[in-house]
């Protein structure tokens, strides 16, 4: 008899919870895939393809469906990896992070033949120009993805360092790798300054 009651109670509970879940999924339904949206929002949107996917959105989708690892975004670096690992609820993975200096593409205009191939390659539409006209890059909008280097038939595009702006300078944390890199950059800057002085 007791066994019967037990089965009855559990069956009742299962039914109740099932109904609640069904109702919840109906009333709290969210359009789209919030997980991949959230991951996409964390990515640096360089659209560089270094992760092996054709852009940031496809990579976000792949991570959300657990096809890709969380550590494939090179420009995002460790910070992005940690954030993605956090919302995916997985262990953080190692990432090869070289302390990279931000770069943008630059077209040597006198060598440009106006083929428009780079314009087609740019994932963020920041190269302007027309057939048989010089092309130029809007430096403020360039994500530094390097996708335009490959298609250029005359190799007239190069990556140049973004000059460090005084307004955007930030204190490096005491005694770390980042501090050393910042220190090195300052030394280089100083040397350049002194050379100017001597010339």
């Amino acid at each position: 008899m007791h066994v019967f009651y037990a089965i009855l109670i559990f069956a009742g509970l299962a039914l109740l919870i099932g109904v609640v879940l069904a109702l919840a999924s109906r009333y709290f339904h969210v359009e789209g895939d919030p997980l991949s949206d959230n991951i996409d929002a964390l990515l640096p949107q360089t659209q560089c393809g270094q992760c092996g996917y054709p852009g940031c959105r496809p990579y976000a989708n792949a991570v959300a469906s657990q096809e890709a690892e969380v550590n494939q975004c090179v420009p995002g670096g460790e910070r992005t990896m940690l954030e993605i690992a956090d919302i995916m609820g997985v262990e953080p993975k190692d990432i090869e992070e070289e302390e990279s200096v931000p770069v943008v593409a630059y077209i040597r205009e006198d060598e440009c033949i106006g083929c428009t191939l780079c314009i087609k390659a740019c994932p963020v539409d920041c190269i302007i120009g027309a057939p048989k006209q010089y092309h130029t890059i809007i430096a403020d909008q360039c994500t530094g993805c390097t996708l335009c280097l490959e298609p250029c038939p005359v190799d007239c595009i190069e990556m140049v360092e973004v000059p460090e702006l005084l307004e955007h300078w930030s204190w490096p944390v005491p005694g770390t790798l980042r501090a050393q890199v910042a220190e090195k950059r300052r030394a280089v800057h100083h040397e350049a300054n002194h050379e100017e002085e001597n010339v």
Partner: peptide, 8 residues
């Protein structure tokens, strides 16, 4: 020289 913040 390393970056040293105030106070000194």
């Amino acid at each position: 020289m390393i970056f040293l913040s105030s106070p000194h």
